[in-house]
Each structure stands twice: as structure tokens, then as C-alpha cells.
């Protein structure tokens, strides 16, 4: 959604579950002889306690640094110097570790590193684990933690995904199904399933424990982002966004670009809905944590936030 500076939310980020209830009650009715004065409106705000503490950002301009931020205060806690640009970054489930991957450039290999951030004000930039991704694999562009801080999964330039033991830095599994670059990886709400979006115009669903390819969602445009509905057991849906790359679009018609958000049935792999609106490729797409809407961010500079109408919940496939 946000390209530059890149950012990744802290793992224990629980979306501000702000429920705003507007009550239109006629609480005060003053009757004088001819005049009625009406209505105060009460707004009740229920706020959850937010456990976010830190946020990490990466700037790709020189000097190459990663910064760790305090979300509550907006202060920058730590600045980590990098040899090459950071391409993927992610907090572990516990929020105590950060995994990041670096680009292969200026004679440096693409690397996967893990640092401990338990002391936000005094983070040691020496990784607790570091492993060379290249040259035995293509460079890692995205990284994601497994559900219990035990392993990380990286998405690669050649379309492969690799699971690494976070302690030893050894490869555990390789999933090679996509034929082109992985653009995005997201977990299901329970962290048990993984969805990958690829330039090869498809998205795939994987089992996170053994990287078994479960499902394939086909489109006719590069897929930049894909997400699994948090209501997956009631509404088994995935949403995908992408579109013709700007440089490949010969005309300005957004019809040819196909910048629609596409909804697929997670199990049957069939597309059942499309949402138009963007006039550039969708770069990032997410379900709302409650599964009742989604947001998409596009190359056109817009973030579109959608809430599902009744038809979304009523639609069912015959089976």
C-alpha cells in the first residue's frame, strides 16, 4: 500500500477496534408553549488497548538505513545501517524479532538476517542469524514469519518460496510453483495458510507447515497482492489485486490494464466478483481484520476502502 518508505507493521498490531455507535436518542425534550428543542447525540467510543510499540521503516535512499519507530510517540528508536537496500522486512509473532532480506548489489549477496529488538532503545544491529540467499537461490524480495517464531518464509525473484529455520539459517522447504517473481505473501488470520501473489498472473494458496501447494487462482494480469479473508471458514474467499504494469500499457485505457480487485472462491478457485475503481495497478490489498471489507492501494496514488454489502454475504456457490 505504501511503497516508499517501505513499512511493515509490528507483529502484535491489533487493529484499533474502535466501535463507534451513534445513538440518535431524543434524550432531552424541552417543551415550552410552542417550541420543541431536540436532540443531543451520544457517541460511545469503545477503545481497545493497543499493544503496538514499534514500527520499522526502510528508506532506500543512501545512506541505506532501517529505522525502528515507536508507534505511540512517533519517535525513531533505532537506526540500522545497511550495506544494500532492504527488500523485505517482518516482525515475528512475538514482536521481539525482525527478519529482513537485502538486495543483491554492489558485490554483496542477497541476505536474510534476523535481529533481536527486545530492547527497543538499544537494538544491537548484529544479526542473531544471518544466511546467504544468493548465489544458490535467486534474491529474496519479501519475508514473512511463520506462526510461532520458529521459521521465516522468503519470496524470490524466480517465483520460488523458501522456508528457513530461524535458528540455524538452513533451508527447510522449497515451494517452486510460480514461474515469475513473488510480489506479495500474506498469512491467513490463524497463520496456518499462506497466499502468494506473482507476476506470472496467478496467486497460490499454501500450507505453511510443509509448503504444500493447495490452490491456484488464475488471472490474465500480473498479481501484485493477494489476501485471505479472516472469515475463511464461513466465507472462503481470497481477494487479489494487480494489473498490467504501467510500462506495458500501450494506451491509457484502464480497461486494458485490468486494475480490478478480483474475488475468488478459496476452495473452488473460481472468480466470482470484481471491483473496479483504480486507474493504475493495485500494489497492495488487505482484508479488514473483521472480514467485512477490504482496502486496496494503487499505483494511481489512491487507497480505496470498501465495505461489503449484503449481496457479498448472500452469494453462495452451488455445490
Amino acid at each position: 500500500m505504501f511503497q516508499d518508505p517501505k513499512y511493515a507493521p509490528a507483529a502484535p498490531l491489533i487493529t484499533t477496534n474502535a466501535i463507534i455507535t451513534i445513538l440518535t436518542t431524543t434524550t432531552i425534550i424541552t417543551i415550552t408553549t410552542t417550541i420543541i428543542t431536540i436532540t443531543t447525540t451520544i457517541i460511545t467510543i469503545t477503545t481497545t488497548i493497543i499493544t503496538i510499540t514499534i514500527l520499522i521503516t526502510i528508506t532506500t535512499t543512501l545512506p541505506l538505513v532501517s529505522r525502528i519507530w515507536d508507534v505511540e510517540t512517533g519517535a525513531c528508536n533505532t537506526t540500522l545501517e545497511m550495506k544494500t537496500s532492504v527488500r523485505g522486512v517482518g516482525f515475528s509473532y512475538s514482536g521481539t524479532m525482525i527478519a529482513y532480506t537485502t538486495d543483491k548489489m554492489m558485490g554483496h549477496n542477497s541476505e536474510l538476517s534476523i535481529i533481536d529488538v527486545r530492547e527497543p532503545n538499544n537494538v544491537d544491529s548484529t544479526p542473531i542469524m544471518k544466511t546467504q540467499v544468493t548465489p544458490s537461490n535467486t534474491k529474496a524480495l519479501s519475508v514473512l514469519w511463520g506462526p510461532l517464531d520458529e521459521y521465516v518464509v522468503t519470496g524470490h525473484e524466480d517465483g520460488s518460496i523458501i522456508k528457513w529455520d530461524m535458528r540455524t539459517g538452513k533451508k527447510i522447504e522449497v515451494g517452486k510453483e510460480h514461474t515469475k517473481q513473488i510480489k506479495d505473501m500474506q498469512l491467513s488470520h490463524d497463520g496456518m495458510m499462506l497466499i502468494t501473489a506473482s507476476m506470472d498472473t496467478t496467486a497460490r494458496l499454501w500450507d505453511i507447515t510443509n509448503l504444500e501447494a493447495l490452490k491456484l487462482y488464475k488471472t490474465d494480469r500480473p498479481v501484485n497482492s493477494a489476501a485471505i479473508s479472516p472469515l475463511v471458514d464461513t466465507y472462503p474467499h481470497v481477494v487479489m489485486g494487480g494489473g498490467q504494469e504501467a510500462m506495458d500499457v500501450t494506451t491509457t485505457s484502464s480497461r486494458i490494464g485490468k486494475f480490478d480487485a478480483r474475488f475468488f472462491h478459496l476452495v473452488f478457485e473460481d472468480e466470482f466478483a470484481r471491483v473496479k475503481g483504480h486507474f493504475g495497478p493495485i500494489n497492495s490489498i488487505r482484508f479488514h481484520p473483521n472480514g467485512r471489507g477490504y482496502a486496496s492501494g494503487g499505483e494511481d496514488g489512491y487507497v480505496r476502502v470498501h465495505v461489503f454489502d449484503d449481496a457479498y454475504y448472500q452469494f453462495k456457490f452451488d455445490f
Binding site: 491489533i14 417550541i35 420543541i36 436532540t39 443531543t40 457517541i43 467510543i45 477503545t47 473483521n290
Partner: peptide
């Protein structure tokens, strides 16, 4: 999303949104 609901703090904020005056016969 609701598994730590008991930890929620509920806060009620009241403010006047609109005031209408309608003459009634």
C-alpha cells in the same frame, strides 16, 4: 478480534452534534 475483550476499556464521550429548533403548533 474479541478474545481479549475483557481487557477493553470503555469510554463514553458525549458531545452535542446538532441542535434544531422547530416551531410546533
Amino acid at each position: 478480534l474479541t478474545s481479549n475483550e475483557k481487557d477493553f476499556e470503555e469510554e463514553t464521550v458525549e458531545f452535542l452534534v446538532k441542535k434544531d429548533t422547530i416551531p410546533v403548533e
